[in-house]
């Protein structure tokens, strides 16, 4: 696929270890645009949009923040969630202002035991760029996993 110089620069940054250890692309050989396209399709196939997923993740992070690292239950006891904050901040690799605290949110389904974790930067990347990171990246989250853990069977 033909890339513009800007796209090439972005891909180089996503594959580099300049912002996070191991980079955002992990071992994924696909172009970032293909990663994004396939994840959007995967999300839409299940009746959602990346923005909806990010919104849910954001709500859970905001819910857990005041508890300063302790678990808090939600969704009538079906999910528990906690946030942990670390020293420093992360920037969005896309060329626009975007600086995020190093905060990791962990969510666990209490009925199935499934767990998932994300950073504030993940929420932004999914909401604004539909980017769930490349396969093999430390904070890659499968859209199907987000939907299964944070949406399905909660009513």
């Amino acid at each position: 696929m033909k890339q513009s110089p800007e796209e090439k620069k972005l891909e180089d940054l996503l594959r580099s270890t300049a912002i996070v250890a191991g980079g955002f692309m992990g071992t994924d050989p696909r172009h970032p645009a293909d990663v994004i396209q396939e994840d959007i399709l995967e999300t839409e196939k299940r009746g959602f949009t990346p923005a909806q997923l990010a919104q849910r993740m954001h709500e859970l992070t905001e819910l857990a923040k005041p508890y300063l690292g302790c678990w808090v239950e939600t969704c009538r006891g079906k999910i528990r969630v906690k946030t942990e904050e670390f020293k420093g901040a992360l920037i969005c690799p896309w060329p626009h202002p975007g600086l995020f605290d190093k905060r990791v949110t962990a969510a666990e389904r209490l009925d199935t035991g499934e767990k998932i974790q994300w950073t504030d930067l993940n929420i932004h990347l999914i909401a604004e760029h539909s980017f769930f990171e490349g396969r093999g990246a430390f904070f890659r989250i499968e859209p199907a996993e987000i939907i299964r853990i944070l949406f399905e069977g909660l009513t």
């Binding site: 996070v20 190093k102 974790q117 430390f138 904070f139």
Partner: peptide, 11 residues
């Protein structure tokens, strides 16, 4: 130093 998940320097 506290380990940061996937942190460049703490790793």
């Amino acid at each position: 130093i506290r380990r940061v998940p996937n942190g460049i320097c703490t790793t």
